[in-house]
Write a protein that binds this DNA or RNA. Structure first.
Lengths: 208, 208
DNA sequence: TGGCGCTTGTGAATTAGTTCACAAACTAAT
DNA sequence: ATTAGTTTGTGAACTAATTCACAAGCGCCA
């Protein structure tokens, strides 16, 4: 299959969330034009995105909502249950561990790690913070699909090295550093400072 | 000035963070090649990005670290202090309000709002949660540059309408919905579900 | 059945973004 | 002062992403 751009995947994810809303409203079909309106893009873009994976619509009618939802879930790999571990039991880690939205979408947080002695053993709901030195062993035993990294910048490179060694192939990185990983490991960055600076830039350069 | 791509702005932000690290190490100059290596891009990209704003380097030598840092801060509008309000006093809002990193970079959280009676009046460090009905009035009095929206999906459109009416021109949106705002308002979205789904897609479609 | 009104799917055209490649400018060494 | 070794800044070439535009398919109604 040809390479799919990250921007395309983001939009598919967006379309799926719209479809879920539309389904709740009880509508049966939806047009590319309507999805485009909701997502702030064009109908051609919507059709092109979907056409990369097959042809799911009916001419003159649009797309059947439950059918397209199902297709998108399949494309995005949301049928499965993913095993997620959180690394870093600080504020962000804590907020993420308690976040309900993960499990709803099939992302099950099954363990939390930290390197700080003082944090180890703390309990959050059903989870207990474990020493990061155990990560590799635990991964071998139960397996993790995704690691959420929420550690201080200075510890992050070392932490990521352990994550990679544990065989985890997908990382959601909240630390404000660029990760260096082998090419078979996928990284997504969430960097608040960068987003705020983007807004700062926009505010500073309006209408020039 | 010509339109600057969002991807460019993200990279400038990244370069700045590298420069801060390099400055701490005490290095005087840095080459586009070194910045590229740190950022996982190419030296031509780095030079092109910078050249959109001027020519800051010295041939044969590279860029003076403090000088380039300063230029980037200027470009990104980080000289100023920005007044930020947080809307939504739930888990994410709370985590953000307590987050130290904001103030360090000139983003000062000066108020928190919520529409839920039960949350109003709560105190977080120096901040007190205020009713969102006061937002417009407060904005007229003290002025806000940026609103961080961290409300449940269903309330978000109404909340955003109030933010826009209050004259705020930049929004950092954590709600998992697409905002519809006038074209003079800049929005950046942070959507965890979307990031996780991107990883899910990558894991499901490796090497095809 | 035939015709009209929609809407998809997709090559072609366009626009945006990245990389190449090299002259010009600078440092350091001799 | 000359030369060798770097590294910038930038048109030109290339690649990627988006938008256009239209034939073809489908439902509905007379």
């Amino acid at each position: 299959m040809k390479r799919i751009a990250e921007s395309t995947v983001r939009r598919l994810s967006l379309y799926l969330s719209f479809l879920e809303g539309i389904e709740r409203q009880g509508l049966k079909t939806v047009s590319s034009d309507e999805l485009a309106r909701l997502g702030g893009t064009t109908s051609a873009q919507v059709r092109k995105d979907l056409s990369l994976f097959g042809s799911f619509g009916k001419r003159g009618l649009g797309y059947f909502v439950p059918e397209l939802s199902e297709k998108l879930r399949e494309i995005l790999g949301l049928g499965k249950q993913w095993r997620v571990c959180i690394i870093g039991a600080g504020k962000i880690g804590a907020a993420l561990a308690r976040y309900r939205g993960f499990a709803e979408r099939g992302f099950n947080v099954t363990a939390v790690y930290d390197s700080d002695e003082a944090k180890i053993g703390k309990r959050w709901e059903t989870l207990t913070v474990r020493p990061i030195s155990e990560l590799e062993k635990d991964a071998a035993k139960q397996g993790f699909d995704i690691a959420v990294v929420a550690t201080p910048a200075e510890n992050t490179p070392a932490v990521v090295k352990q994550v990679v060694r544990a065989g985890i192939k997908a990382i959601l990185n909240f630390a404000p550093v660029q990760l260096s990983v082998p090419s078979d490991v996928t990284v997504r960055n969430v960097n608040m400072a960068m987003e705020l600076e983007g807004l700062s830039f926009a505010l500073s350069n309006r209408s020039e």
